[in-house]
């Protein structure tokens, strides 16, 4: 009888322990994660008014940096910020109105074409959409 009780106790105990080992991941999974949403193909890069004319902002686009430019004329343009030479991150140079790579002075125009320096290829351009106050950037499909 003692043995039987022991087995029952052991059975119930190990069952509960296993259940707990399974419920723990489930509960953690259901709790909201730190970053609330998945990064999408279309990214909210900035809000209207974030960018003064002739300034730019680097943002994360999927797993690569991208750059949103508000030109002197107030036109919104977006590019991949990865230089086609040695994958450095490019910046917007307000004085010349061009994209400029600090590593080897590569320069791109606002159509993404190489103006000067070592970059072999134009930089990728993205589509900019304004929805209400949000500026969305997406890849050209």
């Amino acid at each position: 009888m003692e043995r039987r009780r022991f087995i029952n106790f052991f059975f119930g105990g190990s069952f509960l322990a296993t259940l707990a080992a399974f419920l723990y991941p489930v509960i953690r999974y259901v709790l909201p994660p730190k970053q609330a949403e998945a990064v999408q193909k279309k990214v909210a890069a900035a809000k209207m008014g974030d960018l003064a004319p002739n300034t730019a902002k680097i943002f994360k686009f999927g797993s690569v940096p991208a750059i949103l430019v508000n030109t002197q004329e107030g036109q919104l343009l977006a590019f991949s910020a990865v230089c086609t030479h040695l994958t450095c991150t490019v910046n917007y140079e307000a004085a010349t109105g061009t994209l400029f790579c600090p590593c080897h002075n590569g320069r791109f125009d606002m159509a993404g074409n190489v103006i000067s320096g070592p970059p072999p290829r134009p930089i990728e351009t993205y589509i900019v959409e304004v929805v209400g106050e949000d500026i969305f950037v997406s890849k050209k499909a």
Partner: peptide, 22 residues
């Protein structure tokens, strides 16, 4: 959605606790 499906799986695998396991 084709814009977000892959990203959401990536998100489950990297950001959600135990998402990789599930």
């Amino acid at each position: 959605s084709i814009e977000a499906a892959h990203e959401s799986i990536q998100f489950i695998m990297s950001q959600v606790k135990f998402g990789w396991l599930i």
